[in-house]
Simulated assay, not measured.
Amino acid sequence: MKLRFFRHETAGLDSLVLMAGQVLAGTQTLAELLGARRGDFPALAETMRQHEGTATAQFSTLLTTMRTSFINPLPREDLYALGRLLHETSEILTGAAEFIELYTLERIPARGADQLEIVSRQAELTVAAMKALNDLDSLEDYWLEILRLAKRADHTHRVLVAELLENHSPASFAKYRGVADQFAAASTKMRAVATQVGSIIVKES
Rank of each mutant, 00 (worst) to 15 (best):
R76W: 07
L93D: 01
T188A: 13
T94P: 00
S120A: 03
Q28P: 09
Y176Q: 08
R7W: 11
S172L: 03
V193G: 06
V119D: 07
D40P: 00
T89F: 01
L33Y: 09
A20M: 07
G178V: 13
A36R: 09
L133Y: 14
V161R: 13
H8Q: 10
K2D: 07
T54L: 02
A192W: 14
Q22D: 15
K151P: 00
I100P: 02
Y176K: 08
I108E: 03
D137P: 03
Y103W: 05
L86W: 07
G21I: 06
R76E: 12
M19P: 09
R49I: 02
H157C: 02
G198F: 07
A129E: 01
R107M: 06
M48E: 09
R7D: 03
T61A: 10
K203M: 07
T65D: 10
L85N: 06
S120V: 00
N167Q: 14
S205M: 09
A174Y: 11
T64G: 04
V179T: 08
V161M: 07
A55H: 00
I200V: 15
S169R: 10
V17E: 15
R148N: 06
H87T: 09
V23Y: 04
L62P: 05
L133H: 10
L160E: 04
G112V: 15
S172G: 04
